[in-house]
Write a protein that binds this DNA or RNA. Structure first.
Lengths: 223, 223
DNA sequence: GCTATGGTTTCGGCATGCCGAAAACTCGGA
DNA sequence: TCCGAGTTTTCGGCATGCCGAAACCATAGC
């Protein structure tokens, strides 16, 4: 659009989604994301992603060397944190104020994170009492971009016999989320790793066997 | 877009805005809207409107004869009422639950009306106790498209000496809205028409002179 | 009845974002 | 070192919605 002078901060649904997705990929995993994984997450063709990433790079939100991975610049990270904050605050709000269950909030938050005004969002934050994590246990960055995160291990990597409380459950799959809830695997639940292969988890006095995806979806408190 | 089989109900921000604007034009005025007036209201070029109106007509939302005016079909009216309901419920909610003043809600509602899910909207309706009009006095259609509207005269058309209560204030201009508030011209205020040309209005024990635009922005109860 | 004026429509163009196919590249294994 | 499988990028295309300029129409006034 011609009405945008060069160098101005260009946002918009699409930019916001790319940047947020790039950020969340590295939130619980070290290696930066590549075009095909990003395309996968966004539900787009790889060619579309390459194209868009070039535009993001031109706007200084992302750095990307040809045939390499994609990382956020400080400006990109700031925008990403802003979007993550919005998403998680909205999820929390839907659960607290409207009785959504935590496997239902994702889609609605995905839309609203782009459309609520700052004013409304801060009013919601206020009403909620400035929560620091959402119903899944994911950290809610503060308005100025500070993230508080508890030390945690992924269940998959926890040693046999390890005892801890659940501090995070990935919201990647609604099905899994519902399953966990039905098995009493919820935030702050005390659990014990009985065995690693196959993975057996004791919750209360019940032992549950979990698969690969599940084991990569739960984080336990460390210390 | 290829993924849409012919004849399916196509919605989307743009369609929703056109249809809603066509509807609200005739809400307090009889003659149907023409392309240039519609373009004016939407902030678009007339040529863009002609184009889009053709698409709406092809989808059965609107009827339009070349060089003539634009009217809603039953399907179009249904969609329009849905959008009006959403807009006004959201405005009411922002005022009631977040302390927005009524001259501040419009822009936010303009965005959110397209993005809140039905579920969230109905939850909000519930929390508000199913209001039948918004903070300006505009009717909120019910979920099944029924509109309750009080009998009213536009202030401009009220006879000298007429006494009534304010049942509607047009939200067309924020400036005007703020002015009215400062003069105690609010919903349910009891007012008297002292003279017509120039228009003098008595509110409480104060007489206020109003201009053309103001006189076309206020409706008084009839009977 | 004719024409001028103003609203309406057509047309070519542009920007954004997406796609699939084909070309370009990387890197591990032989 | 060379090859090939798997990624990444390029390229032409498409859909949506918008614009301005030019062509078109309706009708009021003469």
């Amino acid at each position: 659009m011609s009405g945008r002078h060069p160098g101005s901060a260009v946002t918009g649904r699409v930019v916001e989604d790319y940047v947020k997705t790039i950020y969340t990929h590295t939130e619980w995993q070290e290696e930066p994301i590549g075009p095909s994984a990003l395309a996968e997450r966004l539900g787009l063709a790889a060619s579309s992603v390459t194209e868009m990433v070039n535009k993001l790079a031109a706007q200084g939100l992302v750095s990307h060397v040809r045939y390499g991975t994609i990382t956020l610049t400080p400006a990109g990270r700031t925008l990403a944190l802003r979007m993550v904050r919005r998403h998680r605050l909205i999820e929390t709000w839907l659960v607290e104020s409207f009785g959504y269950s935590w496997d239902e909030v994702h889609d609605e938050a995905e839309v609203l994170e782009h459309t609520l005004s700052d004013r409304l969002l801060e009013a919601i934050d206020e009403q909620l009492g400035h929560p620091v994590h959402d119903p899944h246990g994911d950290a809610i960055p503060s308005a100025d971009g500070v993230v508080m995160r508890p030390a945690a291990v992924m269940l998959r990597d926890a040693a046999e016999g390890f005892v801890g409380t659940v501090v995070r459950i990935s919201d990647h799959s609604s099905t899994l989320l519902r399953y966990f809830a039905s098995e009493r695997i919820v935030l702050d639940a005390r659990v014990q790793v009985i065995s690693s292969r196959p993975l057996m988890l004791r919750v209360g006095d019940i032992d549950i066997q979990l698969g690969e995806e599940a084991a990569a979806s739960i984080w336990l408190s460390l210390g």
